[in-house]
Amino acid sequence: MNAKRSMTLNLTDAEMAAVDELAQKKELSKTAVIRQAIRLYQMLDARMARGEKLFFEDEAAKKKAELMLL
């Protein structure tokens, strides 16, 4: 298994509330939520760097919007 390292994370109340809410909803620890967020961000960034695009689609409303990553 990979060795793990610790870091202190400074979050606003709103950001911490979002982490708490996601942890509860997804049945994850807060660490796992943040780990998943990092993985997703890295994956999206890599795919967009390869020229792929990211879209959100609402089939019912027939709407499709491209998402830009910073």
């Binding site: 997804k26 049945e27 796992a32 998943q36 993985r39 997703l40």
Partner: peptide, 15 residues
């Protein structure tokens, strides 16, 4: 570990 989520009713949307 991303971006797939559970589809079974009891776990819908969970990683």
């Amino acid at each position: 570990t991303q971006p797939y989520q559970a589809r079974l009713a009891g776990d819908l949307g969970r990683p």
